[in-house]
Nucleic acid binder design. Structure first.
Length: 853
DNA sequence: ATGCTAATCCCTC
DNA sequence: GAGGGATTAGCAT
């Protein structure tokens, strides 16, 4: 009897399950038709009939009012087709159809419904098949059926409450516990089992759904962030002129964006997969995000469309209000983003972040453009660079060619500014990595170039580099660059320093001023110098050296520079590439010696290796302090004195020295002046560093020669050394005095720096002790060639005039403790004393060199 | 339309 | 064969 399976289904113990709804419906109607057709054979219990009617009503509601009888069912191609597609194969259909025809009254109901029979079903239908044999059995079966429960049934709230409370304690009860529960709640054990099973599944689904939503949120956030960055990147604007900023080499940022986009896409795909999995449908709305963007400059990438076209003004609350950018998004693609991405709270929270990322993208773009320019400047020769015989054959920039070749990266040269641009290449005993590291650390950079960098700080690190290297490192720096003379103002520069690895063992570090970007936002401070893309390209050489090409390019205000020094600066001798390279060579040579285990010593003193190292360190500090005292750098708080009534060429400054163990406490007075001397720098340098001739200018010598107690070479050149001098050695009645002296020389200039030192303290240092507590105040000389004709051709230029070639610019500077009480007032007398001292010294030097004017 | 729940099917350990 | 994932049917919102 065909009701067997169906009625069994109704009692909830078994079900046909599995099959598609349509198929089940059809089969149901089919059966129904049979039933009505064969009504006489089936004595159905009233309950069964009414139940069936109930179902039929529902099914007819679904299927339409027409009930499908046997003939309509099998003569309707569409339905037949539907049936077949709902089945698992033709064979089954055939079998079932046969059953329907031959099996008397469509007992195939179960077969059609399931399409396949489960174990349970077969078990259940065994009784059904028994029924198949005879109408009586059918009747009996129907008669034996228990009172039918509704197929749809929910546990009572009490039962669920009980189940929940048990679930809370134990989500996985064993058989015994389930049995107990089933008795208690009047449920079948299998019902209890199913309930727990379903509850666990539900929990899991909820959990995963929750995770899913978190992931989506995160994804949205990342996309919004990426969006803002890209938007800022896409419409850069020059804050100087309001026009579009020049876009330089964007290959690296493009790389970054590609990586970022690929990552976002992966995440999105994953979230979509999860979402569709748990939502039970494909999350098609996100499929507009079809692939990674191809280039940041593309006007409408897939990402853009996905984010910007959800019916809201894309990022409107954010971008248009906070940035001077036009946001021009396409429209027309269906909603791709949940609205909360652009919710007001999110927008306001993002404003500062976006401004910052905008600023950073400006910096990055400037840095990339500067890097591009530096590399081109370093690699291109004529006609961009030409050797100017007037300045000793050094390379200078062809400005016309430069303007033709490059877009103005930081805007036009301010009115009244002049340009200097030089290039120099040299071999330096340092590897590229070490040099890069030195340049990227402000303190080490300043230490490497003590005569040039008066002060350096890193004000912001925009990127510290990639993969633990300095490649891609980008930072904001502040520096004061100097020429050691009171007649040349310190150059205060704010710039970006950007480091990039171009190949294995090839690095470049570029600086470029950011005053053009900051002008609008920052305080309106006057800058006397802008650095155009400058820096170096370093290439490792096999012998441990590296080849360094330095480019120095700046616009500066010449009016602040004394006439005496203008030629020096304008030709780049003062601040130019040659000075950087020669200083680097000299310093690296010294460092190489410092690093070596045994510092060579030319004297026969018994100073230990560590003692010599301590002396070098002390000398380094002395020289740094000397340099800081010559120019009015802000390392120390110097107070300039108005020297109205005194010689205006001498600059006098004072500062208070307190709590610095490296120098005596009190009022320190610094006096410096610069003069031109018609003698070659070499001659002047040799004269000043010769301890035998010391008495000719140094009042500390007590009128006699000095004796060199110790001598530590810092390089090949005899002129680069640290020595310890003893004054008054000729006169045993006088107390002797020690003077620490450091001399430096290279093609761009020379230094002689010295300071009287305490004898006991010096003993400590010479034995390797800490030199930090040796108090000293340095004095000394800086010598540079007097201008274009400088040392590069000074020796062999046949037609060099006596005045122009071979002359020197000498800076004399003293730092003297005028009062050991920091609170004391400076007296006119002490200023005059210092002024006299400095004038006297200059006069003595002139006299000694026979160049009195 | 979508979500929840009881139940079934089917696979794995 | 118990348990769990996938799926379904029936109902509720």
């Amino acid at each position: 009897m065909n009701f067997g399976g169906f009625l069994d289904n109704c009692d909830g113990a078994t079900s046909s399950g599995g099959g598609a709804r349509l198929v089940a419906d059809i089969s149901y109607n089919h059966n129904n038709g049979n039933n009505s057709n064969n009504n006489g054979n089936n004595s159905m219990p009233p309950g069964a009939i009414s139940q069936q009617h109930q179902h039929q009503q529902q099914q007819q509601h679904l299927m339409g009012p027409t009930s499908i009888n046997k003939s309509t069912f099998f003569n309707t191609p569409g339905l037949s087709l539907a049936l077949q597609t709902g089945m698992e194969g033709h064979g089954e259909v055939t079998r079932i159809t046969d059953q329907n025809y031959d099996g008397n009254n469509g007992n195939g109901s179960g077969g059609i419904i399931g399409g396949r029979r489960s174990r349970e079903e077969e078990h259940e239908s065994r009784s059904g098949s028994d029924n198949l044999d005879g109408a009586s059995g059918d009747d009996q079966d129907a008669a034996d059926l228990p009172p039918r429960k509704k197929r749809y049934h929910r546990h009572t709230p009490q039962q669920i409450q009980e189940l929940e409370s048990v679930f809370k304690e134990c989500p996985h009860p064993d058989e015994k516990q389930r049995l107990e529960l089933s008795k208690k709640l009047c449920l079948e054990t299998r019902q209890v089992k199913f309930w727990f099973q379903n509850r666990r599944t539900q929990m899991k689904t909820q959990l995963e759904r929750h995770e899913n939503s978190i992931l989506r949120q995160e994804n949205d956030k990342l996309r919004a962030e990426n969006m803002s960055i890209r938007e800022a990147m896409r419409n850069p604007m020059c804050t100087n002129c309001g026009g579009p900023a020049m876009i330089g080499d964007i290959s690296m940022e493009e790389q970054h964006l590609r990586i970022e986009n690929a990552r976002l896409k992966d995440e999105l795909d994953r979230v979509c997969a999860l979402a569709s999995k748990f939502l039970g449908r494909p999350v098609s709305s996100l499929s507009t995000f079809s692939g990674p963007m191809t280039a940041p400059s593309m006007p409408s990438s897939s990402l853009e469309l996905a984010v910007g076209t959800n019916g809201y003004p894309p990022m409107g609350n954010v971008t248009t209000s906070s940035l001077p950018l036009g946001t021009d998004f396409g429209s027309g693609i269906s909603n791709a983003m949940p609205p909360h991405v652009v919710s007001p709270t999110k927008s306001t929270a993002n404003v500062s972040g976006i401004e910052r990322s905008f600023e950073r993208s400006m910096y990055l773009e400037l840095a990339l453009g500067a890097m591009d320019e530096l590399v081109k400047l370093a690699q291109t020769d004529e006609p961009l660079w030409w050797r100017n015989m007037d300045v000793g054959g050094r390379e200078v920039l062809n400005h016309e060619e430069y303007i033709r070749s490059f877009n103005p990266i930081i805007g036009m040269k301010p009115n009244g500014f002049v340009s200097e641009a030089t290039r120099e290449t040299g071999m330096v005993i340092i590897n590229s990595l070490a040099l890069v590291e030195t340049l990227m650390e402000a303190n080490r950079w300043a230490e490497m170039f003590p005569g040039m960098v008066a002060r350096a700080t890193t004000t912001d690190v925009i990127s510290s580099g990639m993969g633990g290297t300095r490649n891609g490192a980008l930072q904001l720096m502040h520096a004061e660059l100097q020429v050691l003379s009171p007649l040349v103002p310190v150059r205060v520069v704010n710039f970006l320093r950007f480091c990039k690895q171009h190949a294995e063992g090839v690095w470049a570090v570029v600086d470029v001023s950011i005053d053009c970007i900051r002008e609008n936002s920052g305080s309106p401070t006057y800058v006397n110098c802008r650095r155009l893309p400058s820096g170096c390209v370093v290439q490792d050489m096999p012998n441990g050296y590296s080849k360094v090409t330095w480019v120095e390019h700046a616009d500066y205000d010449e009016s602040g520079i004394h006439q005496l020094y203008r030629p020096l600066v304008s030709t780049g001798i003062g601040f130019g590439a040659q000075r950087w390279i020669t200083t680097l060579q000299r310093q690296c040579e010294c460092l190489a010696i410092l690093m070596s285990s045994n510092i060579p010593s030319n004297d026969h003193s018994a100073i230990t290796s560590s003692g010599r190292r301590s002396m070098l360190k002390l000398a380094q500090r002395m020289t740094n302090n000397f340099c800081a005292g010559v120019c009015a750098s802000t390392v120390h708080q110097w107070n300039k004195l108005d020297m109205g009534q005194v010689d205006e060429d001498v600059r006098v400054m004072t500062r208070k020295s307190v709590d610095d163990p490296g120098e005596p406490p009190g009022i320190v007075l610094s006096a410096a002046t610069s003069v031109w001397l018609p003698v070659s720098p070499q001659r002047l340098f040799d004269f000043l560093r010769d301890e035998q001739l010391r008495s000719e200018w140094d009042i500390l010598s007590n009128g006699g020669p000095m004796q060199e107690m110790a001598h530590i070479a810092k390089g090949q050149d005899q002129g680069n050394c640290v020595s310890l001098l003893r004054a008054g050695a000729m006169n045993p009645n006088q107390s002797s005095m020690l003077i620490l002296q450091e001399t430096c020389t290279d093609a761009s200039g020379s230094l002689v720096v010295y300071a009287p030192v305490d004898i006991p303290a010096m003993h400590v240092v010479m034995n390797g002790g800490d030199s930090a507590y040796v108090a000293l105040l340095p004095s000394g000389f800086s010598i540079v060639p007097d201008g274009p004709g400088g040392p590069a051709n000074g020796d062999n230029s046949p037609n060099a005039g006596p005045q122009r070639v071979g002359g020197s610019l000498l800076t004399v500077a003293f730092q003297i403790l005028v009062n050991s009480l920091p609170t004391a007032k400076l007296t006119v007398e002490s200023v005059e004393t210092v002024n006299n001292l400095i004038s006297c010294t200059v006069q003595k030097i002139k006299a000694a060199l026979n160049c009195e004017s």
